[in-house]
C-alpha cells in the first residue's frame, strides 16, 4: 500500500512511513466524498457545525491509518461520527464556551430571541440524546442523516428488520424525554 497521500487539489503530501503507520492512499477521495455527511451526522447530535467539524476531523484522523475497506468507509465513518459526537455530549467538553459564543457559523439567526430559543431547544435535544441507549441513539441519528435501512443495518451489525424496531424505540424514547423536560410555558 502506498505510504503517501494522493496529491490532488493541492493536497498536502505525507512522507513515507512504515506500512503500519501509513496513511491510506484513498484518504482524500474518501474524505471529499464523505466529509459533508460525516459533518452532518455529528451536527445532528451536537447542534453545532463548528463542533461537528471538529468531530469529523477526529474521525478522519483515526480513519486515515485504519484498514477499513473502502467499500465500508461510509458506514464506518458515519458510525464513528455518531459515537464520537455522543461521547462528546456526555463528556460535555467545550460545551460551555461554545454555547457562550452562540455562533456555529452555519446558522443565521434573525434576532437574539430566536437565538436563545434555538439554543435552549438544542440543549434539550442533546440532553435527551445523551440519555438514550447508545445503539438507539446511533441508529436514530444515522437514519435521520439519510442512511438507508440497509446502510444502518450494515454499519451497526443489525438485520434490516431490526433497524425499524431500534429507530422506532429511539423515536418514542426521544419524544418522551423531550416531553418530560419540556419548558413549562
Amino acid at each position: 500500500m502506498a505510504g503517501v497521500a494522493e496529491r490532488k487539489g493541492g493536497g498536502v503530501a505525507v512522507s513515507d512511513r512504515p506500512s503500519r503507520e501509513a496513511v491510506r492512499a484513498d484518504l482524500e477521495e474518501v474524505f471529499r466524498a464523505a466529509y459533508p455527511r460525516v459533518v452532518a451526522v455529528a451536527a445532528r447530535v451536537l447542534g453545532s457545525r463548528d463542533e461537528a467539524e471538529d468531530v469529523a476531523q477526529e474521525v478522519f484522523l483515526a480513519f486515515a491509518r485504519s484498514s477499513v475497506p473502502a467499500g465500508e468507509a461510509g458506514g464506518w465513518l458515519s458510525v464513528a461520527a455518531a459515537h464520537t459526537a455522543l461521547n462528546q455530549l456526555r463528556s460535555g467538553r467545550r460545551r460551555a464556551s461554545r454555547e457562550e459564543a452562540a455562533d456555529d457559523g452555519g446558522t443565521v439567526c434573525p434576532d437574539v430571541a430566536d437565538t436563545v430559543v434555538t439554543l435552549d431547544e438544542r440543549r434539550r435535544v442533546r440532553a435527551a440524546l445523551a440519555r438514550l441507549p447508545r445503539r438507539q441513539a446511533v441508529a436514530l441519528v444515522l437514519r435521520h442523516s439519510g442512511l438507508s435501512y440497509a446502510e444502518v443495518a450494515a454499519a451497526l451489525d443489525l438485520s434490516p428488520g431490526s433497524v425499524g424496531t431500534t429507530v422506532r424505540r429511539a423515536e418514542s424514547a426521544l419524544r418522551e424525554e423531550l416531553n418530560r423536560h419540556a419548558p413549562s410555558e
Binding site: G9, V12, E28, F31, E58, L61
Partner: peptide
C-alpha cells in the same frame, strides 16, 4: 470540504493520529 481537507492534511503531516478509541 477544501478547508476541511487542508486541516486534516496538515494534522496528518504534523503527526497527529487521532484518538484511537473515539472512532
Amino acid at each position: 470540504v477544501d478547508a476541511g481537507w487542508h486541516r486534516l492534511a496538515s494534522a496528518i503531516a504534523g503527526g497527529e493520529t487521532g484518538p484511537e478509541t473515539a472512532a
